[in-house]
Amino acid sequence: MKVACVGGGPAGLYFALLLKRTDPAHEVTVYERYPEGSTYGWGVTYWDELYAKLRAIDPESARAIRDGSVRWKSWVARVGEHPPARVGHWDGGFGIGRNLLLGILADRARSLGVHIEYGREITGEEELSDADLIVACDGVHSALRERHSGHFGTAVALGRNAYLWLATTKVFGPFTFSFAETPHGWIWCYGYGYDAGHSTCVIECSPETWEGLGLDRATDAEGLALLEKLFADILDGHPLIGRDDAGERARWLNFRTVTNERWHHGNLVLMGDAAHTTHYSIGAGTALALGDAAHLVHSLTTEKDLAAALAGYERGRQATIRRAQKAARYSARWYENLPRYAKLPPEQLLTLLGRRHSTVLPHVPPGLYYRCDQVLDRAATWWSRIRGRA
């Protein structure tokens, strides 16, 4: 087949290298609108489960990703003036620079014979009329998807809270949360290291707090200075960085949850953020994009007919994405209702943060839920020990 991938993010590059690895006879080209080496954003997260899958699928790229990652094994939260609380028994995770991740995937793809055209923006299928398959992995604002949004059944829901994706030269050891109370309400951030000298820092607040603090009208410099003051407790004098390697300035946004009823149209198929998004607070975007790529390659190599392959990919991945988007909705709502939890002692808040996907938590007083959770946790520990002696 002659295959065109529109978008050189994690989904497009991983799909291209896996397809070429499966059958070198395929002619695979990736079209990326940005120049090589420039990308929007800083660090991204992934978890042990994803690393195990990557290692099983393509050990070479998996090793390079792991070697370039920063790992954390504990979580710490600072809430107002309280001493920090730490939790060490949650599953650890990894952070890696987005630019480094893309470089690893691009190098691996090219080593297998994939052709990558940087600085080439594709806005319509007619530009790729000789392709047997066009994979639209051109992000949340996908131009190819929007041309057929009626067919795909595209829907976009905006989150209530404002958020800002920044970097800092403060390298966080544990995954770090900070919740600051202001006269205009709560504002919070979380940070995680992604290389030896930098961390990602995601900041979020309600629209009332955003406007009350003047962040809606502050200049870039004024906004960063205010945020550095509000989160001085975790930054330790380090600056926040608001302009990335691509030269783009960070902007306050409302998260866009994208869903599509259908994921393919003729020989055009959606993948990654073009097909779906999940709220950043569950840290699943990269894993889901790479999972899409692996599943689509599997369908193409196990089905002789292209239409059947695309239908199988759509059916299989939609089931996974629905579960992830449900968890993401509950996670986003937990943050949107932060005042409900913010007055709890930090260790209780951190515990309930870990339970934010619960369908019960929004309907039970937080203190009562915490006490019940602790009783159940102790009971589970006791039962495990009893079974271990049997």
Rank of each mutant, 00 (worst) to 15 (best):
D233Q: 02
G237P: 01
R249M: 11
R251S: 03
D233L: 00
W252A: 00
L253Y: 11
T257F: 01
T257H: 02
L253W: 03
V258R: 10
W263K: 07
H265L: 10
G237N: 02
D233W: 01
R249H: 13
A246M: 14
N260P: 12
H238N: 05
T257I: 14
T257A: 06
N254Q: 04
L240K: 03
A246P: 14
R249F: 13
N260M: 13
I234W: 00
R251C: 04
L253T: 04
V258D: 09
G242V: 00
D245V: 14
A250C: 03
T259R: 09
A250G: 11
D236P: 01
I234V: 06
A246Q: 15
R249P: 07
D244I: 08
R262K: 15
R249G: 08
N254M: 01
P239M: 07
W263G: 04
H265F: 07
F255P: 09
N267A: 06
N254S: 01
G266W: 07
G237L: 03
W252P: 02
P239I: 02
R262P: 12
D245I: 14
N267E: 05
N254G: 00
N260R: 13
D244P: 05
G237R: 02
I234Q: 02
D233P: 02
I241Q: 03
G247P: 15
P239W: 07
D233G: 01
R251T: 10
G266L: 06
R243K: 15
T259W: 01
R243F: 10
T257S: 15
D233C: 00
V258E: 05
R249Y: 13
H238M: 05
D236I: 00
I234R: 00
T259M: 08
H265M: 07
G247R: 15
R262V: 10
L235K: 10
T257Q: 06
G266Q: 08
T259A: 10
A246R: 15
N260E: 10
I241H: 14
I234A: 00
I241A: 05
D233A: 05
D244A: 08
R249K: 12
H264E: 06
L235V: 07
D236T: 00
G242Y: 12
H264G: 06
H264N: 10
H264Q: 08
A246H: 13
V258H: 01
N260G: 11
R256Y: 09
N260I: 14
N267I: 01
I234P: 02
N254C: 07
T257C: 07
V258Y: 03
D233V: 01
A246G: 09
R251W: 06
N267W: 04
L253M: 05
R262A: 12
L235D: 04
H238A: 04
E261L: 08
L268K: 07
R251F: 06
R243H: 13
R251D: 11
G247Q: 15
E248T: 14
